[in-house]
Simulated scan of single mutants.
Amino acid sequence: MPYLHNYRLFISHAWSYSEKYQRAIKFINAAPNFIWTNFSVPVDKKFENMSRRALEEELCQQIRPIQCVVVLAGMYVAHSGWIQFEIDYAKSLNKPILGIIPWGAERTPASVKLAANKMVGWNAASIVSGIREITP
Rank of each mutant, 00 (worst) to 15 (best):
P2M: 13
H5Y: 10
Y7M: 00
R8F: 03
L9F: 03
F10M: 03
F10R: 02
H13G: 07
A14I: 12
A14R: 10
S16I: 13
Y17D: 13
R23C: 02
K26Q: 14
I28Q: 03
I28N: 01
I28K: 03
A30H: 13
A31P: 13
P32A: 04
F34G: 08
W36T: 08
W36D: 05
T37Q: 10
N38Y: 07
S40K: 00
S40T: 11
P42E: 07
P42W: 12
K45P: 11
K46I: 14
K46L: 11
E48R: 12
E48D: 13
E48I: 14
R53A: 06
A54W: 06
E57M: 03
E57G: 04
E57K: 08
C60M: 08
Q61M: 10
Q61T: 11
R64A: 06
R64L: 13
R64N: 14
I66F: 08
V69T: 14
G74M: 02
M75V: 06
V77Y: 09
S80Y: 03
W82G: 05
Q84A: 03
D88I: 00
A90P: 13
A90C: 01
K91R: 15
S92K: 07
S92Q: 07
S92N: 11
L93F: 07
N94S: 15
G99T: 07
I100C: 04
P102Y: 01
T108S: 14
T108Y: 03
P109Y: 01
P109V: 05
P109M: 01
P109C: 07
A110P: 00
A110K: 09
S111L: 06
V112C: 04
N117H: 12
N117G: 15
N117T: 06
K118G: 00
M119A: 02
V120N: 02
S129Q: 13
S129F: 11
I131P: 13
P136G: 09
